[in-house]
Design a protein around this nucleic acid. Sequence first.
DNA 1: GAAATAGTGTCTATAAGACAGTATTTT
DNA 2: AAAATACTGTCTTATAGACACTATTTC
Lengths: 222, 222
Amino acid sequence: MKAPDSPSLFLTIDVVLLTLVSGQLHVALFRRDNEPFKNALALPGGFIHEQEDQDAKAGAARVLKSKVGVVSPYLEEFGTRSGPARDPRGWSLTVVYYALLPASALSEELTLYPVDNLPRLAFDHSEIVQGVVERVRSKASYSSLPVFLCEEEFTIPELHAVYEAVLGEKMHAAGFRRKLDDLNVLEVIPGRTKVIGRNRPAQMFRVARPFLNKLSVRDRGL
Amino acid sequence: MKAPDSPSLFLTIDVVLLTLVSGQLHVALFRRDNEPFKNALALPGGFIHEQEDQDAKAGAARVLKSKVGVVSPYLEEFGTRSGPARDPRGWSLTVVYYALLPASALSEELTLYPVDNLPRLAFDHSEIVQGVVERVRSKASYSSLPVFLCEEEFTIPELHAVYEAVLGEKMHAAGFRRKLDDLNVLEVIPGRTKVIGRNRPAQMFRVARPFLNKLSVRDRGL
DNA sequence: GAAATAGTGTCTATAAGACAGTATTTT
DNA sequence: AAAATACTGTCTTATAGACACTATTTC
């Protein structure tokens, strides 16, 4: 093993930040100020700062904070994309992270695009977003992942609607309740209820402490 | 975005090659010839060769071929490990891949260590192996992954034993057959049977073409 | 034919889905 | 009280595990 002398090999981070706007998954994108792909839309990302970043995930958190202005409780590695062709500047490797937040946590300024009708993106970012969305939908089908798209306090019917939006399919309400129950992620907020129309108010819940930044997973799907 | 001028930031690949020896998962390790961690055991790995490697996965395949002398049909990204402390030479990021092969495909020279009783390893390789083993056990519980630990032709009872070895638990034989069936990964080899003792011979199977290098996954676990 | 493992059929227990019924609010 | 949605109880159906039975070989 000898040290590499490679001016044209570089390392970046990209973050796929997903949120729900009017029942549709959206991704946060930015218009690039510089070459390459100047003026094209791209994921928030950048180079690793080896002075600052304790690891790649910390770099992703820094990108989220500096470019989007948020801290995400859920921030997971998706995987890497690499090769000589994906960035015209040379052989590159990007570590892709994904985060989920409720739209209310995001600035109004932020530009969000529906993932199922994306414009053309810079680099291989279209493929990356598609891959992340697939992963998120898959995880949603057997885990508590969609709770990160909810406000801090929410009702079961609200969460139910979020699951249906992410998965794109109707879920049986009674079964949903029962199966959510054995995920053990939810905590009743005693006394707090929420009235929507002229009907029985729904109990409000929050995410239980152990699952504030990780998933609860089921064996048999939701 | 400005180009990074980072002599102390580098990019490596590591491969966790797992196999089954006498019913126990083993990992292929090499004794390091050079500093850092000279003489310590480590995963096969190395720097990205940006002239040769089409991407990180191709680099992993190259490492497997050159250091272990094998080509693995199944080669998957596990994830990355990074930071300033894991390698004394500076801020490093490694992309970890894992591969599964039957012991018969490996050279006799290769040194294999049982994953549940590992010696001390270089860098953060102990933690990496542990993470990969966890991932492999998890995937084995709902997918066809363990077929990659089998020979090209094998019987259901043999495959059954492989699953039990990986998962470390007894599985009900009749249910195992039925559930394997709807994975659709197996293809009867007409006429070919295998006799073990003085008993009914078992039908031999091979992996069906579409799953020669990818998994078949079940909803409900095996 | 006895022994041994391969493989199947069926019964039972458990979990999921359907659906009806009860609960609690506003108007 | 009517309307509307929240929530629960129970019946039915699908799936998984247990277990007994049949199949095919060697000795």
